[in-house]
Design a protein around this nucleic acid. Structure first.
Lengths: 351, 351
DNA sequence: TTACCTATCCAAAACGTTTCGGATGGGTGG
DNA sequence: CCACCCATCCGAAACGTTTTGGATAGGTAA
């Protein structure tokens, strides 16, 4: 037994024990054809016995690949929960695992900006690709990554250059168009749309869906009231909704940009003794867990976050694996029809 | 201008441009005292101009530290959502970011076991520490990490050796003891406990809390029915609960090991036209989002996952930073009192 | 002047891996 | 017997960083 002066489990130690060169051991494990079958067997068995795992840094340094995909968590100043974060990470991580990749998550610390974190992550070579979420209409992160030629994919999309990079997005336009058509078909003519005041693409797209549906509908006298509030300010929403629902010509149906907002509508309706869906129809978006249990059940759209994230991982990994064509995908959320929408009350239609 | 034959942004390139050695540049950036103040300034400025970021692999290789903390996601065969995963990751990642660490997440692929993934992660040197969740009563992962002397911390704890490693756990015993006392004080004497059939420590501990409270209470005639079901089988729970609530001597109060189970109770109660809390008190645990909106509001315990995860990160990082004393912490969840519990109905007490 | 000290800098080794470009030796065809 | 080929193996370079152990030059004390 030659005394082992090296880290247990290093290639060098393995080579020493087997009386082979590091090169041969490495190539044997990699399955190259220029090592004898018998030798390969010997090496593989020894590696298994020693529980050899190649050192990450060494491999990374020479190959230039880390086997990591980066995801920067949106910074949340407010104690705001993203109800889909867990699903997103689970789905993403799953699809990465199938191809031997791991997920590297970083949050931006209070002392730094998201761009700094992104740059550090990319420039340090610690990731082979990047997943971007919460895309704004013009997103500097997209420009940065495009310039650096780093493989990346976004969940959501920017306003422009949409064919220049890979993205996967939920078809919010279709969903809201669908919801609007549904409400119109049920006889609703006074609609309200509760939106957000950020420059997010998903807002743009969902509002567009409503507008398109109304424009294409063959009905007259449709009125649409749109309100924009701060997504993280519940009180703001509640007061706006109160005003809306106590106005003389209050809407008979509310479209909410997100389920969270829809819950606020239900809350105010309950305060005001308006019964859902008899007095007011409500449709949300997202299918958060609350939607299923809040009475009378919130009609909404399910965006199957986990599957989407899983696909995001796949597309990104494909783009790393050589073929660098950008790829876009619009995923259509499906309507989850519950109790919060119905025909417009008859006394309203006649009024 | 000397042509730069090296990767843009490498130390070598910087040294070349500044007409200094790699050593000096490295030491200047690291703030060593053996480099002239003027030189240091020059180096730092050049680094900022070039946007120099040290290569992760190079540093890792020589220092032996990666700056990563590993977290292996529980594998979920079933399409089961962990409602707290997002919060946990957000909190953990946040506290890591403050100290310059990133979070490395891996899922176990269908072809491998969790132990294999853990071993590969540890042995490859890609993490400086490990966070373990979903601890079972005797958890081989804990044994493995202890043997390897890898810094780690668990969310939850094993049955034994609790003083031998660091853990942070929710004080489920206290919570369930508290809940039981509360119900007893409200006059309830026929209690039911809906539990799970896995060998998780949190089950053990929470059941213990109920038992202790009953034993210490100065009341006679307390009866406790405990049911164990498969946590991922909703139908199983529903049928057990149906049977329970239609039995002649049905309980007047239900303790549910988790909020998900409590929701099932509420659902069955609604089916059977039992009104909550008049006919039946229900107390859950976890404070999942649904608890706030399901009528009449689920009384439960909030375990502030995000803060807990944040502390987990801190403790782990401290243990990496030299002082290796193990540290344990029990975090007491607080009661969120909503509408699902009340005094025992008078016609029952008299019966 | 000489010996020593200090401030400032640097060459080279080391970390563990992959890979390029041979080296070695036995067998084959002429 | 010679030239060549093939199968098998290996030395050494390279990746980018940190760190050890000096080297150099100028100043200071004797």
């Amino acid at each position: 037994m030659i005394p082992n002066k090296h880290r247990k489990g290093s290639l060098k130690a393995l080579a020493q024990e087997l009386d082979l060169s590091i090169t041969t051991v490495s190539r044997a494990l990699a399955g190259y054809s220029d090592v004898a079958a018998a030798t390969q067997k010997r090496v593989i068995e020894a590696a298994a016995r020693i529980n050899y795992v190649p050192n990450s840094a060494g491999k990374m340094l020479v190959t230039g690949r880390s086997g990591f995909i980066g995801l920067t968590l949106p910074l949340m100043d407010e104690p705001f929960r993203d109800p889909f974060l867990g699903d997103f990470i689970a789905g993403l991580s799953e699809s990465l695992a199938e191809r031997g990749y791991d997920l590297l998550i970083n949050t931006v610390a209070p002392s730094q900006t998201e761009m700094q974190v992104l740059q550090r992550t990319v420039e340090s070579g610690r990731v082979d690709g990047i997943v971007l979420t919460r895309i704004t209409e013009t997103d500097e992160r997209v420009d940065f990554l495009r310039a650096r030629q780093i493989p990346f994919i976004t969940h959501g999309r920017t306003l422009e250059d949409q064919s220049q990079y890979s993205w996967i997005d939920t078809d919010g336009e279709h969903a809201f168009s669908h919801a609007t058509q549904l409400l119109l078909a049920l006889g609703h003519r006074r609609l309200a749309l509760l939106s957000i005041n950020e420059h997010m693409m998903f807002r743009q797209v969902r509002e567009q869906g409503v507008a398109t549906a109304i424009a294409n509908a063959n009905v007259a006298d449709v009125s649409l009231t749109t309100k924009h509030c701060n997504r993280f300010d519940s009180e703001g929403y509640l007061s706006v909704i109160r005003k809306l629902l106590t106005s003389k010509k209050r809407p008979t149906a509310c479209l909410a940009l997100t389920d969270e907002i829809a819950l606020h509508v239900l809350q105010v309706a309950s305060e005001l003794n308006l019964s859902i869906p008899e007095d007011l129809s409500v449709i949300g978006f997202g299918n958060i867990p609350q939607a299923a249990v809040v009475p009378p059940g919130l009609t909404t759209f399910d965006q199957s976050t986990r599957d989407t994230a899983s696909q995001i991982g796949e597309v990104l990994l494909n783009s790393i694996g050589g073929k660098t064509v950008s790829q876009q995908q619009l995923i259509r959320p499906f309507l989850v029809s519950r109790g919060s929408h119905a025909e417009v009350p008859s006394h309203i239609t006649s009024a």
